[in-house]
Design a protein around this nucleic acid. Structure first.
Lengths: 147, 147
DNA sequence: CAATGTTACTATCAATTTGAAACTAAGTCA
DNA sequence: TGACTTAGTTTCAAATTGATAGTAACATTG
């Protein structure tokens, strides 16, 4: 996709497409949330060509989802850690997972558990204002007047 | 991405990548939730080349997100409407929007309002079991034993 | 100190995908 | 009869993908 000024688009979804809208980027972010940080961990986990991985990591870094951090001076080695923006992307990944669990289920599937209770979580998106689940009440999409 | 057996992958996120991981598909789904159904509506709204739109619509249809429906017999015309799976994808889109609002904000942005109360919604993902917001408690990713 | 290993890449290049522009097909409307 | 509408297809240059191989900088092993 030619990302001509998606950054000017008034739609917050369109604005996120710089890294979203790429399968590898989503999988890298997933792995980052699983605790992976290094080039070779991502490469082996995903079976991704190093050329592509390099580009995706660079893009995710530039987009502020990951941050490069030196973890060894000799030899010089860098790893990729989630930024605040990257960590806050977790709800999106979890909701994707919930959708996939429901509509792409069948066979063995990874489940997410609460580490303290040990129970499988049931992810739902709600509107914090009304408390209603997203999808149960009609919504309206509003573009505020611009000066 | 070469989608060799993502359908066998135990990760529900990976399984959803057939249409996720494509910027146009996400925008088409967004527009579908805005009420668009026709080829030309999508094309004009997105500024997408008809070649690509044709392919994406076919894929989303094949993936069960959209359904073709005849809306005129003479001349024969078809439109694309959301399936249950497509409608249930809304929470993902809303969470992406919430993330984008926070981390890709600035300037005029579309906001989502509750149509009844008229107030802007505050989307959050929670675990229905504990009631806690996703990201506030440690999680564990579990692959259940297979036979 | 030479050989092998580790980690994080880059180079090369064929094959696929993208996307712009023009065109088509089947009909309606004036 | 001629313009218009809707949902596409054709064509093709340019960009992207991804497999394979190679590199750079250092550590470890014998």
């Amino acid at each position: 996709m030619n990302d001509k000024k998606t950054c000017d688009d008034p739609c917050p979804i369109a604005r996120s497409l710089a890294f979203l809208g790429d399968a590898w980027s989503l999988l890298i972010l997933r792995d980052a949330h699983l605790g992976f940080t290094r080039f070779d961990q991502f490469r082996k986990s995903l079976g991704i060509a190093p050329t592509i991985l390099t580009r995706r990591l660079a893009m995710l870094t530039e987009e502020g989802m990951l941050e490069k951090r030196l973890y060894s001076e000799r030899p010089p080695r860098e790893e990729y850690v989630l930024t605040a923006a990257g960590r806050d992307f977790l709800p999106v990944l979890v909701m994707i997972g919930a959708w996939g669990h429901r509509y792409r289920g069948g066979g063995r599937l990874v489940r997410i558990h609460d580490a303290e209770t040990g129970e499988a979580i049931k992810p739902v998106a709600i509107d914090e204002v009304t408390g209603a689940k997203i999808g149960t009440r009609p919504l309206r999409f509003v573009l505020p007047d611009g000066g």
